[in-house]
Design a protein around this nucleic acid. Structure first.
Lengths: 248, 248
DNA sequence: CGGGGAGTTGAATGCAGTCAACAAATGTGG
DNA sequence: CCACATTTGTTGACTGCATTCAACTCCCCG
């Protein structure tokens, strides 16, 4: 973990602002809102960002890298709740029970923008728009959670895997000017833990998808030559998924 | 659908306030906040409250009865996202894309307290606490969504069914002074749609649970003689689940 | 060069789905 | 109030997808 409080990059021209917390705010409000941001924090791959049960003091926007949010189950398994990519907002918590219900680990090396949670109260009272920006973010989170639920409940494993790969690809590619392939730091086991499958079966699905030419996946990188075709396997409409994964 | 705008019950001594939106507010703030509530709405069993794609103008707190929130899938299936019980907050939406991502149907006859969404903005600017009350609600929603995800991903169907029955029982029982049995308006097919199982298999699990004496379920009513025992099958800690299902 | 994590393959088991038919409960109209 | 229709619940036989267990390969990193 490495903290940086000086020479923070400007929010105004931040590449990920459109999809992040401040993307919901008009530029003229940025001055006041930016007062929230106190620092940037970096973690190396494999490091915990926080643990289930922690009481957080800072919320984060992912600035660079991928993060896994997950719960450890009593049988030793873990359930991955989602993968957080640049622009995602983590760890905000104001309810009565302030304990976090999940843990987070850096999948790749990550950098986060940190916001002291207790400062949100003051800023919101003079800038109610921030409250709506927060609501908007959590609405997206819930929506994604809903589609995740829907996906995991759907029976054929091929559908689940296709859905997950496609949605990660769309999100990461949009941050990178839509390259052919994206860096793909997660393992087949991560995917299994996210979808409630065994790594072995995920592997078999991967091979089947490769054989069909739907995915190119090796060396920690992922390519999807024909997104529409994969969307068909994922049983989802591509435009809908793109809308969900981008802006809001 | 039946609208009522006169003689609305007082929020102060509302039985469900503790678990509802205003439960997050201190009593001294209630005066201003209550200005939000405009009406009560009633629906009969089977009626739609709203449809996926609608742009809502009102948010609701469930006052009486059960509601199903669900998505229709392209293969004709539907995925139930959650069952909303008295105290639950529905249909609040402020993000850029204001379309609802799911539909809602009254399972039993229901009564809702309605709040015009556009009035939240004004009230929040003079009562920032309301913004935190909203955040707190959505945090609970996300937490429940997370445990739902975790449950549905878990493999044995018995675990899933046990979890769902137990959590519904705990919530409804706490509203009713913990009776032996609760009214249980949902069908086995609903449960199947919530858990991603077939109704046939849900039925088999029901019979197995009945044979083990873990559930008493007939005539639209549910009893759970030994919650701890069912919690064991659900592979969840009973105190944890109770905490999640009650206050927050 | 060795070790460990990630990925791959095969065989056997079993949980849950499918299809089909029927029983029970609930609701509706005559 | 009964007869009929519809929905909900129940049972059985068969199939198949995904798990489990075990062994082995590949690749990266130290």
């Amino acid at each position: 973990m490495k903290l940086n409080t000086v020479n923070l990059p400007k929010c105004e021209n931040c590449a990920i602002r459109a999809t992040a917390l401040f993307g919901e705010l008009e530029t003229r409000h940025l001055d006041r809102a930016r007062a929230l941001r106190s620092s940037q924090v970096s973690y190396t791959a494999g490091e915990y960002l926080y643990y289930e049960g922690d009481i957080p003091t800072k919320a984060f926007t992912v600035y660079k890298g991928w993060v896994t949010l997950f719960k450890n189950l009593r049988n030793g398994d873990r359930q991955i709740l989602r993968f957080a990519l640049p622009g995602d907002f983590l760890c905000y918590k104001v309810g009565k029970n302030k304990q976090l219900d999940h843990s987070a680990i850096a999948v790749s090396d990550v950098t986060l923008c940190a916001f002291p949670i207790d400062r949100f109260r003051e800023v919101i009272s003079e800038l109610p728009e921030l409250a709506f920006a927060l609501s908007s973010i959590t609405e997206t989170t819930i929506k994604r959670c809903h589609t995740a639920l829907t996906t995991i409940a759907s029976h054929p494993a091929e559908t689940k895997v296709a859905y997950l790969l496609l949605s990660l690809f769309i999100r990461e590619a949009s941050l990178l000017n839509n390259p052919e392939r994206i860096p793909f730091p997660i393992t087949q086991e991560d995917i299994a833990d996210a979808l409630g499958l065994t790594p072995i079966h995920v592997n078999r699905v991967f091979q089947s998808l490769r054989k069909q030419g739907l995915i190119l996946c090796k060396n920690r990188s992922l390519g999807i030559p024909d997104k529409a075709a994969l969307a068909k396997v994922a049983k989802i409409s591509l435009p809908e998924l793109e809308q969900l994964m981008m802006g809001i």
